[in-house]
Amino acid sequence: MGQQKINMTSSSFRLRCRSLNSLRLRRIFDMFDKNGDSMITVEEISQALTMLGLEAEFKELESMIKSYIKDGNEGLTYEDFVGLHESLGNTYFGVEEDEMETLDTDLWEAFKVFDENGDGYISAKELQVVLGKLGLVEGNLIDNVQRMIVSVDTNRDGRVDFCEFKDMMRTTIVPASS
Rank of each mutant, 00 (worst) to 15 (best):
E43C: 09
F111R: 06
R16S: 10
E60H: 13
D115Q: 02
R16K: 05
R14C: 11
E96H: 11
E44Y: 05
E43Y: 09
G36K: 08
M8Q: 07
D37P: 11
G135S: 01
F32E: 00
N117A: 08
A124R: 05
L103W: 00
I149C: 04
F32Y: 11
T171D: 09
D98R: 00
R170N: 15
I6E: 05
T105R: 04
S11D: 09
L131Q: 07
D33K: 04
E62I: 03
A56H: 03
Q128H: 12
E96Q: 15
S178W: 08
S12Q: 15
L52D: 04
G118P: 13
N7R: 14
E101H: 05
W108I: 00
G36T: 03
T50I: 08
I173N: 08
N155W: 00
E101Y: 00
E57Q: 11
I122W: 05
V150M: 08
G83S: 12
F29G: 02
V82R: 09
L107I: 10
L141I: 05
G83P: 07
F32V: 10
T41R: 01
D33H: 04
V129M: 06
K5P: 10
S22E: 14
I122L: 08
R159E: 06
E96G: 07
V160K: 02
E43A: 15
M64Y: 07
H85V: 15
V42P: 13
L15F: 09
E96T: 09
R170M: 13
N21T: 13
D104Q: 12
M51R: 07
W108V: 11
K5T: 12
C163K: 15
A124L: 09
A124F: 10
E126Q: 10
M169L: 14
I149D: 03
L52S: 03
R26F: 00
E126L: 06
S19W: 01
G118R: 07
F165E: 10
M169Y: 01
G83E: 03
M31D: 09
M51I: 02
E74G: 15
M100D: 07
V130E: 03
L76A: 08
G118I: 13
G139V: 02
D143F: 07
E55W: 00
